[in-house]
Amino acid sequence: MKSEIISLQEVTFTYTEEEKNIRPAVDNVSFTIYEGEWVAIVGHNGSGKSTLARLMNGLLFPQKGTVRIFGETLNEQNLWETRSQMGMVFQNPDNQFVGATVQDDVAFALENNGIPFEEMVERVQQSIEKVNMSSFMNSEPHHLSGGQKQRVAIAGAIALQPRILLLDEATSMLDPQGREEVLSIVRKLREETDLTVISITHDLEEALLADRIIMMNQGEKYAVGSPEEIFLRGQELVDLGLDLPFAMNVSRLLRDQGIELVAEHMSEEELVNDLWTSHFNK
């Protein structure tokens, strides 16, 4: 059985009155994430998912409950050691860039962590190669497309050889092509390593890639399950301010038009195969 890598036990966090939050942003939330899992944390704006991200990476500490990372309670004493094993990619990659070129930017965190120069050069090259950005080594990050920028941000994160990759709305500012570029890189990294991925997102297409989904609503853990288990709630998700995956929405529209389908489809490929087999390949 996989070992526990992150565990929240009865965690509560409330912002101050000045920040105009009259209820806990996270209210008595407990869950465990295991090594090698891809877990998506989803919810509408204000559901508490971004606060959970800050609690897991130590930008915030809970007022009640405990956050355990790698088996130890997260605190100010072990915060920096813990963060050195956690790669983070945020919503806006421009806010993360500090280097004049792609390779300088990827090397920045390694320099801060005192990695020897020869090893640093090797790690930078390997990480940039893994995200298919080798031809942009000497390019200025701000001249890249949105998807390319996020790939560089991922390269900087994985250069540290982390055990956890935390994506905090990392695809929300990207167009469909950029989003697919980034998610395909993450899928490939998981195939090659035992990397644990935590995806904080409101994009249910992204959540489909996860092993498990933790659904938040008004600061509370609302549901936990596989993507199939969560999405089969259908209209319940829509009523909570979330959209359904594209294939599910199309499936519903087709049924409304009297077109029978074999099942409720999560992916476009499943839907196309159903339509082809049931209605066109006769």
Rank of each mutant, 00 (worst) to 15 (best):
R83F: 07
M86C: 09
M86P: 10
M88W: 00
V89R: 07
V89H: 07
F90C: 05
F90E: 02
F90T: 01
F90M: 11
Q91M: 04
Q91P: 11
F97I: 01
V98Q: 01
V98P: 01
G99V: 01
G99N: 03
V102P: 05
V102H: 02
Q103P: 02
D105H: 10
V106D: 10
V106R: 08
V106Q: 10
A107R: 12
A109N: 12
E111D: 10
E111F: 05
N112T: 02
G114K: 08
I115D: 01
I115G: 00
F117T: 08
E119G: 10
M120F: 06
V121R: 13
V121M: 11
V121C: 08
V124N: 05
I128D: 06
V131H: 02
V131G: 06
S134C: 00
S134V: 10
S135A: 08
M137W: 02
M137D: 04
E140D: 03
H142N: 06
H142D: 04
H143V: 00
S145D: 01
G146D: 04
G147H: 00
Q148Y: 08
R151I: 03
V152N: 04
I154Q: 05
A155W: 06
A155V: 04
G156L: 03
A157R: 07
I158G: 09
A159R: 07
P162E: 08
R163D: 15
I164Q: 09
I164M: 11
L166W: 13
S172C: 13
S172V: 09
M173H: 07
L174M: 11
P176Q: 11
P176F: 11
P176C: 12
P176K: 07
G178D: 09
E180K: 12
E180Q: 14
E180S: 09
E181P: 04
V182T: 03
L183N: 08
S184R: 12
I185W: 07
K188H: 14
K188D: 15
K188A: 14
L189Y: 08
L189W: 11
E191H: 14
T193Y: 14
D194Q: 15
L195R: 12
V197L: 10
I198Y: 14
I200P: 04
T201C: 01
H202V: 00
D203N: 12
L204Y: 01
L204M: 15
E206V: 12
A207R: 05
A207D: 06
L208P: 03
L209E: 09
L209D: 07
A210P: 14
A210G: 11
D211G: 02
R212T: 12
E220Y: 11
E220P: 02
K221C: 14
A223Q: 13
A223S: 13
G225I: 03
